[in-house]
Design a protein around this nucleic acid. Structure first.
Lengths: 144, 144
DNA sequence: TATATTTAAGATATAGGAGTCTTAAATCTT
DNA sequence: AAGATTTAAGACTCCTATATCTTAAATATA
């Protein structure tokens, strides 16, 4: 699969936060409930985003997580790289360690072309942009 | 990662066979040696392709594996689906089980567009086409 | 027929991702 | 100050992909 399951959870959770307007901190328990993700597991995932400086968190009653920067300035590429690492945007389709423009595998140039489209999509898509679709057009973040 | 490591092995091995001209059967041991893949593991992988009808095999001295059909008629999409299954071409980027045109996730339409480009690339790329690049232009199938 | 070569098949091991559970720390409310 | 709420952190379990090892079956050659 293109993105790990952990990354799926991270994206859906951050989109949930971005689609929840007028909230200071959103409790992880609420997100986990609404999206059908294990609470403890989600806690661990969002902790990574907090450590990466994408989210900030607050303990105790009325606590939760929130964006460290405006959601309009956070691309989904940031989330993807924070969770899955840069491999998707860097690795050879055939798994060669030293595949490059100079020493390419036989499908290198075609793959690089599609991969950069994908990277552009991810880089140009902010959490806010997608969250607005959820909030205003009813696009889905969870199954049923 | 986009393709599993097992699928990487399968593609490199089939490309090796396709790039080895004028051979009836290519022994798996030779492929494993040349590509730096564990012999027993590769045997198991190629066995799947044999069961799928993509390869045929022959036991004993001068035995090995060969294509069941001309390499020009086998797309890399076939290999990918035989090994990794159809998930890559079907699944939602956010991991939703019921994401569809009717009930899309917020990035559905953009993802579908890129995914179909990828599928077209895979479907339109035959093993022979890539193997010719290896054979005639020195493109790489292994590191160093 | 005996031996060497090669794939087939299955059992077993290893590593990493995914998920759970428990305890600690911070913060609010009463 | 006490208790409730919520994130942080770490240990632990579970599952799957990856990889290894052993034995069996088929085939060629001498």
């Amino acid at each position: 699969m293109v993105l790990s399951k952990t990354c799926n959870h991270a994206l859906r959770a951050t989109l949930y936060i971005a689609a929840a307007p007028d909230r200071t901190f959103v409790p992880i328990g609420e997100i986990a409930d609404q999206l059908g993700i294990s609470f403890h597991f989600l806690t661990k995932i969002l902790q990574i985003l907090t450590q990466e400086g994408i989210l900030r968190s607050f303990k105790g009653p009325n606590g939760g997580v929130a964006f460290a920067r405006p959601a309009a300035e956070i691309s989904i590429l940031e989330i993807i790289i924070a969770i899955d690492g840069p491999a998707l945007m860097e690795k050879c389709l055939l798994g060669l360690a030293h595949c490059s423009d100079e020493h390419p595998c036989p499908i290198h140039s075609q793959w690089v072309r599609i991969r950069s489209r994908l990277q552009n999509l991810f880089a140009d898509t902010s959490l806010k942009k997608l969250a607005d679709r959820v909030h205003h057009q009813g696009y889905r973040l969870a199954d049923r």
